[in-house]
């Protein structure tokens, strides 16, 4: 395999490893679940409050989102949260670069 293939494989491995990191942490340290839940609740609350301000609608929508995203699907949401952080620091460019080295 040439070096271009190695680049894309390493990027995909790093991508999968980072996405699997929150479920792994939660599995190894069950108490981390509460930490992730707290972070997600804070993010959801601040997001909805930023959109709607203080009011009954904020509580309603925050409650709905917390039920689905934190209580029901915490592992998926925490992985997506880590992915969002990575995109924010420019990890998407790395993926595009790796894909570009393979297909050009």
């Amino acid at each position: 395999m040439n070096s271009k293939g190695n680049v894309i494989i390493f990027i995909l491995i790093a991508f999968a490893a980072v996405l699997l990191l929150p479920p792994l942490i939660i599995t190894v340290f069950p108490a981390a679940k509460y930490l992730f839940a707290l972070i997600m609740v804070f993010i959801i609350w601040s997001t909805v409050r930023g959109y709607l301000g203080d009011g009954i609608l904020t509580y309603l929508f925050t409650g709905i989102l917390i039920y689905f995203l934190v209580i029901k699907w915490l592992t998926v949401t925490s992985s997506l949260f880590v992915f969002q952080i990575l995109l924010g620091v420019g990890f998407g460019s790395v993926i595009m670069w790796g894909v570009g080295t393979r297909f050009r």
């Binding site: 609608l57 929508f61 989102l65 689905f68 699907w73």
Partner: peptide
């Protein structure tokens, strides 16, 4: 079930955006 619930979550986000815009 996961995808159905995620559809609902996205719809909730759409409504939040629309309500914010209108208000």
């Amino acid at each position: 079930g996961f995808f159905e619930e995620m559809y609902f979550v996205i719809q909730v986000f759409i409504m939040i955006s629309i309500i914010s815009f209108i208000l």
